[in-house]
Amino acid sequence: MKYDGPLNTLDDWEDDLKQRYPEQDQPAEKAKDEFRDYGEQTRPGVREFYRQNHRYQTYDFVQQKRTEFLGLDRRAMTVWEAMEYLNQLVDESDPDTDLSQIEHLMQTAEGIRADGHPRWMILTGLIHDLGKILCLFDEPQWAVVGDTFPVGCKFSDRIVLAEFFADNPDSNDPRYNTQFGVYKPNTGLDNVLMSWGHDEYLYHVVKDYLPEEALYMIRYHSFYPQHRESAYDHLLNDHDHQMFQWVQKFNPYDLYTKSDQRPDVEALKPYYLELIDEYMPGKLAW
């Protein structure tokens, strides 16, 4: 199943992240300062994706989407059913891999499992991208994936392709275009409205089932302006800084476990069904 939009596939954004943030313990093919080159070398699809994302992710838009989706009344599904539902997003047009979404999720989870991390973290790896089912609810890609950032305050110039925020109405709104905007200094992320996407949506689906460390991983794994650039330290409180250590621990598994080596889904399925049942039995509201 294919989706028209500024990116050829949903995986394009993740491939772009790996270019921006190369695995630090592997030699890079180009100089370190070239990896954040978003000039003429940026693929047109990536630029168009962020042009739309930065134009339309406003404070009012995010509130509208939260009202629209956070009633969690679209479907009732088990986690495994949600994985199979997401599997409709097989990237048939991707020339580099023909792995299914379930296989991608299992690659992340198996990387975490191989390194001996807790069972809840393995499960977090398995489910962290399930919020992408928003695409199957007819949401455009720019409102599902992409780097996330706070709305309701000035957009940081350390957000990728920040120049496109010039077209965002909030950039000219005195309520929202100052450093703190509608927030108080170091208010804590629980009090900050993030741009809309699969991270925030999935957090609300699973927030009653997993440890807080897992919920931070899910809710902020795309918040690259903070966990790679520290662009919003002025909004975080001490607890956020402590919990972000878990986001940073999770990030390499999210970025660098994708490969063309297929996991054996049927062989692994009993293990993961048991793991899901341990933390999130039965049907969840989506």
Rank of each mutant, 00 (worst) to 15 (best):
Y253I: 08
I276E: 02
H239C: 02
Q101I: 03
H234A: 13
E110N: 06
P150A: 07
Y232D: 01
Q226M: 12
G131F: 02
L255I: 04
D170H: 00
H221R: 11
L86I: 07
S93M: 12
Q57C: 09
K65A: 12
W246C: 13
D260E: 04
E14V: 13
M1S: 08
P6M: 04
T42D: 12
I218E: 10
D94R: 13
D233C: 04
T148H: 06
P22Y: 03
Y220G: 05
F61Y: 08
V265H: 00
E278Y: 12
H227G: 01
H241V: 10
W120Y: 15
L136W: 10
Y272T: 10
R75K: 15
E212C: 05
T257W: 03
I122N: 00
D208T: 02
H198Q: 11
M77W: 11
V192T: 08
R113N: 07
G125I: 05
D4T: 07
N87I: 12
K258A: 06
F137H: 14
D240A: 13
E92R: 12
A76F: 05
F49E: 04
L275R: 04
H239E: 10
L99N: 11
D129F: 13
F244A: 08
D94P: 11
A114I: 01
N186G: 09
R228Q: 13
M106E: 07
G71V: 13
Q226G: 04
R51N: 07
L130A: 10
Q242W: 06
A28T: 13
Q57M: 14
D277G: 07
V192Q: 14
E29S: 03
L235V: 11
E29A: 08
Y209P: 06
P44R: 13
W286S: 09
D157S: 13
P281N: 06
R36Q: 11
Q19G: 00
F69I: 14
T257F: 00
Y176F: 15
D277W: 12
G71T: 14
G39L: 09
D157Q: 12
T187P: 03
Q242L: 11
G116H: 03
R113I: 02
Y183L: 12
